[in-house]
């Protein structure tokens, strides 16, 4: 409070010179000095070390079976369960990649939509929740989540996909996933990753204006692994909801929206309401920001979501025809 009063006085006196020092003040007050600079550096280093470790694991995991496959290939081109021979269709592949790019853009669209709906003092935080998801989750997806969602879990395949594709081991451009025989496996993986990015970003809608950012980032990583990946496996990857119950979910009604929506409800309950919720009307966003939001959402969200849906229509229809012609196991 004192600081913002000072800020206002400072603004009155001189515009630019005062401002830089005030910003510096604000920056130094936000938790850096709690552990001291050394503690902060140590934490950053630990984080970097862990990331590097994870990366090198991924590279190693990709390398090792590559060699095994090279020898195996000459003997017999037999592929493990969800893999299948690639019947490359360039049209399908181009379309899936284009659709993946469009779905990717939905997340920034969402960031602007949500960002425009909060009060201007929380704008950047809300934007960063979506962009943070876009940054953190691809790594999680490549390291393990893709495998849990679309791998073959053997005896446990009804509930989880195992670690067959951990670190994208065996996910290459010369074979295909049996769910999409006409496109390379990597294109399939990329396309599915886009849904993995936007789902946790959707949850942020019930958490804005009050959640700690570090906790949010930790939450979405754990949520992606423990909730999204298994649910995607149940519905799409051969688990019990899609295969046994026979529920239909074309583009993520259950996996993306119901999943995110109920997580959002849990989050709103766990967090409690914002300060002053229900008492003042000042929770409404400022006019200017709403205009910005609708413009951005209009161009990004609304134009792109139908594109995603049609992408799926086109893509799944092509799948269905291939699947109907050669359907060996479950219906």
């Amino acid at each position: 409070m004192n600081r913002s009063n000072a800020a206002q006085r400072g603004m009155m006196r001189s515009q630019t010179g005062e401002r830089t020092t005030l910003e510096a003040n604000a920056r130094s007050s936000n938790g850096l000095n709690r552990f001291g600079r050394v503690g902060h550096i140590a934490r950053s280093l630990t984080l970097m070390a862990l990331t590097t470790l994870a990366m090198s694991f991924a590279v190693w995991a990709q390398d090792a079976p590559e060699a095994a496959k090279a020898t195996g290939k000459e003997a017999a081109p037999k592929l493990d369960a969800p893999l299948t021979a690639l019947k490359l269709d360039t049209g399908d592949t181009a379309w899936v990649l284009a659709a993946a790019a469009l779905v990717l853009l939905m997340t920034p669209g969402l960031a602007f939509f949500y960002g425009g709906l909060v009060r201007s003092k929380n704008m950047l935080n809300t934007l960063l929740m979506s962009f943070g998801a876009m940054a953190a989750l691809p790594i999680v997806w490549m390291l393990a989540a893709y495998s849990i969602a679309f791998g073959d879990g053997g005896g446990l395949n009804n509930v989880w996909g195992g670690l067959q594709f951990a670190g994208l081991n065996g996910v290459d451009t010369t074979t295909a996933h049996s769910l999409a025989a006409t496109i390379p496996h990597q294109a399939f993986m990329i396309f599915q990753m886009m849904f993995f990015l936007i789902t946790p970003a959707l949850i942020s809608g019930s958490l804005v204006e009050r959640m700690k950012f570090t906790t949010f980032l930790t939450f979405i990583v754990l949520w992606g692994l423990l909730v999204y990946a298994p649910v995607a496996h149940w519905v799409w990857g051969g688990g019990f909801i899609g295969a046994d119950i026979g529920a239909l979910d074309f583009a993520g009604g259950a996996v993306v929206h119901v999943n995110a929506g109920f997580a959002a409800l849990a989050g709103a309950l766990a967090l409690g309401p914002r300060k002053g919720y229900g008492q003042s009307s000042s929770m409404r966003p400022t006019c200017r920001v709403v205009c910005w939001a609708s413009a951005c959402c209009g161009s990004a969200g609304m134009a792109l979501t139908p594109a995603r849906l049609w992408a799926r229509v086109r893509w799944r229809l092509s799948l269905l025809s291939t699947r109907l012609s050669a359907r060996p196991r479950r219906c």
Binding site: Y114, L117, V258
Partner: peptide, 23 residues
């Protein structure tokens, strides 16, 4: 009393469920 600030649950949770049933 639940502060679902930007209606994430109302739109995605409930909407997704409705869509699934209508499917």
């Amino acid at each position: 009393k639940v502060d679902d600030s930007l209606d994430a649950f109302a739109v995605h949770g409930v909407g997704g469920f409705t869509g699934a049933v209508l499917t």
